[in-house]
Design a protein around this nucleic acid. Structure first.
Length: 598
RNA sequence: GCUGGCGUAGCUCAACCGGUAGAGCACCUGACUUGUAAUCAGGAGGUCGCGGGUUCGAGUCCCACCGCCAGCUCCA
């Protein structure tokens, strides 16, 4: 939980009842019912806080022993009793000192700690639920009988007040809806999310794997996934050349000298894989590409006439991530960033920021993403660089976002110490946000590497530098892309675009010929001949989410035609091989700047 | 890293209180030659995550490690 979120939760404990939506109120009340049930079933359990959240609610407890999954059913049963009893929620108020004494007497040390954080003159409210009560600002439903449909979903742990150094509490997650039908709908959505999970699809479609013998968070791209990645990269490279970039390339390791200069050994060391000794020199795997590009920039005296330089690299980096944080392809230890560094003059900064932002949105739209969250992260308390140029950069970023016409949020003080940035997050199948695109101004590395250019006045000037990634990393982007399309990649990205299928063995030579013709035209085509029934072959291709199935029986051989079926079940009229090739070419066109059809 | 859960054939899963591993799909072989989401039969396939320990005997119990899942913390 961020500090801001924590503030929100804690501020909800004192003063007048905040305005919660009916659903939020219902869920918060359900959390109270759960807390009552837990304290009855597990005497000695201390209560803490229990807010409603986006998909339900949770309540954090400090129990004598950790909860297990089996406990959830017992708690649910106890909750049902409380609901059936239709106990009213009643608000009571007390002076702060009386409230403190009351909770202290009960041994509710966490509640006491919360009260201690309230203003001295605060009137503290608590709510009774039958013979049970809880420190709470409310609001609540009138009585427990209003809780019609709820379910406890998970047990986990969480740190008290979100701080790693604090004691760990036991958190129980649940959800509640105003009707059983809504709850069922929600549970069905979760099932659907499981089917879209890129880890599931990656296995089913043989796209990638991660093997513990190789190491956690290190990805194997199988041929099918490798093909999709190649298609993404090819598009990416072409677009970069078309948008004024040059492609560069740098090694995976470098001497500690480089990382001292860049500052990574002082501020990023705990995220770097430990070094290796080579001939008495320490080498470390790169966690970022920027120091290489900076070093490259220093080769030669730069003139304002040659700026800006836009150097892009699909650079593979390695970062040590703590063991519990890896998640499929979304969070890994080795990944390839679609990185670029822009070197420019101060004056060029606003124009370059606008240009790169538009480029970014163009690329994402081409891949079919329109539902993303934009954040502008501004100057933090600790920062390097001239406040004046910070202001220029922030104003430029704000201006770019406004011009885009897209909604965005400002994250005050959320910028890196070295500069402000725009972050763009995409959602996974469970609506969790993952940062993909980022555009970051950097006032630090140009100093550390002493990057300069000769200005019009023949004087050396400090470079302004921008880091940016559009997709973020190939791994994370591929994961989000896979979940976005549930594995049914748009035709331009599909690893196999069409499968040619025979009805019996007789048509095998013709099937082969059709496949060869289409392959020669540059399409990705494979075949399925042999003894299986047609239905089985169709089913197989459907499961593989291949966009087109070309059925060839005796009729098609006779007419030198194909009967094409789309993966959406549509049946195209029988057509010649060339006619289908034309159809496929249209379907496979890259929807540049548009939205790729699913 | 923390808490809880988990790790059995390529995949999905089964094996009561410890008695020495089983199914479906996939794969291979054969038969069938099929018109739009699963043809039939046979076969092969496992040092039960890895290493210790307890026991006459461990997939099952204990310890440590590795990995996975959910959440937290981190990350941006």
């Amino acid at each position: 939980m961020s500090e801001q979120q924590e503030e929100d939760v804690l501020s909800g404990l004192v003063g007048a009842a905040p305005a919660l939506s009916p659903l939020e109120t219902l869920r918060h009340s359900t959390a109270h019912v759960m807390a009552k049930a837990v304290q009855k079933l597990f005497p000695g359990t201390k209560v803490t806080i229990g807010p409603s959240i986006e998909s339900g609610f949770y309540y954090d407890f400090d129990p004598p022993r950790p909860f297990t999954e089996d406990d959830l059913a017992k708690i649910e049963a106890e909750m049902k009793k409380i609901v059936d009893a239709n106990e009213p929620f009643v608000r009571h108020e007390l002076p702060r000192s009386d409230a403190r004494a009351m909770f202290e007497k009960l041994g509710e040390t966490y509640k006491v700690e919360l009260i201690d954080g309230f203003p001295p003159d605060a009137v503290v409210s608590y709510y009774t639920t039958g013979d049970w009560f809880d420190l709470c600002r409310g609001p609540h439903v009138k009585a427990t009988g209003e809780i019609k449909a709820f379910k406890l979903t998970a047990v986990a742990s969480a740190y008290w007040r979100g701080k790693e150094t604090n004691p760990q509490l036991q958190r129980i997650y649940g959800t509640a809806f105003s009707s059983q039908a809504d709850l069922d709908k929600h549970l069905a959505r979760l099932e659907e999310a499981k089917r879209r999970d890129h880890r599931r699809i990656g296995k089913d479609l043989d796209l990638f794997s991660i093997d513990e013998t190789i190491g956690a968070g290190l990805v194997l791209w199988h041929p099918k996934g490798g093909r999709v990645r190649h298609l993404i990269e090819t598009f990416w490279r072409e677009e970069h050349f078309a948008h004024g970039y040059e492609l560069v390339s740098s090694p995976h390791i470098a001497r500690d000298e480089l990382w001292k200069t860049s500052g990574h050994l002082s501020f990023y060391k705990e995220n770097m894989f430990s070094g290796m000794d080579v001939d008495g020199q320490q080498y470390l795997a790169k966690p970022m590409n920027c120091p290489f590009h900076c070093t490259m920039f220093k080769k030669g005296l730069r003139s304002y006439r040659e700026l800006p330089h836009r150097w892009a690299e699909l650079g593979t980096v390695y970062r040590y991530e703590r063991s519990g944080v890896m998640h499929g392809l979304l969070r890994v230890r080795g990944f390839t960033q679609d990185d670029a560094h822009l070197f420019m003059t101060r004056e060029q900064l606003p124009g370059e920021l606008e240009r790169v932002t538009n480029f970014c949105l163009y690329i994402l739209k081409t891949f079919g993403f329109t539902d993303f969250k934009l954040y502008l992260a501004t100057r933090p308390k600790e920062f390097v660089g001239d406040p004046e140029i910070w202001a220029v950069a922030e104003a430029a970023l704000l201006d770019v976002l406004k011009k885009s016409g897209l909604p965005f949020e400002v994250d005050p003080g959320g910028g890196a110490f070295y500069g402000p940035k725009i972050d763009l997050k995409l959602k996974d199948c469970l609506d969790r946000e993952w940062q993909c695109s980022t555009i970051q101004v950097d006032f630090n590395l140009p100093e550390r590497f002493d990057l300069e250019y000769v200005g019009q006045d023949n004087k050396k000037q400090r470079i302004v530098m921008v880091h940016r990634a559009l997709l973020g990393s190939m791994e994370r982007f591929f994961a989000v892309l896979t979940e976005h399309y549930a594995g049914a990649f748009p035709v331009w990205l599909a690893p196999v675009q069409a499968r040619v299928i025979s009805i019996g063995d007789r048509q095998a030579p013709y099937v082969q010929e059709v496949a060869e013709i289409l392959t020669k035209k540059g399409f990705r085509v494979d075949t399925h001949v042999g003894g299986d029934k047609l239905g089985a072959k169709i089913r197989q291709a459907q499961l593989e989410k291949i966009p087109f199935m070309l059925v060839c029986g005796d009729k098609e051989v006779e007419a030198r035609a194909v009967a094409a079926r789309g993966r959406d079940g549509t049946q195209l009229p029988a057509m010649s091989i060339d006619a289908f090739a034309e159809h496929l070419a249209k379907a496979a066109a890259i929807p540049r700047g548009g939205v790729a059809p699913a």
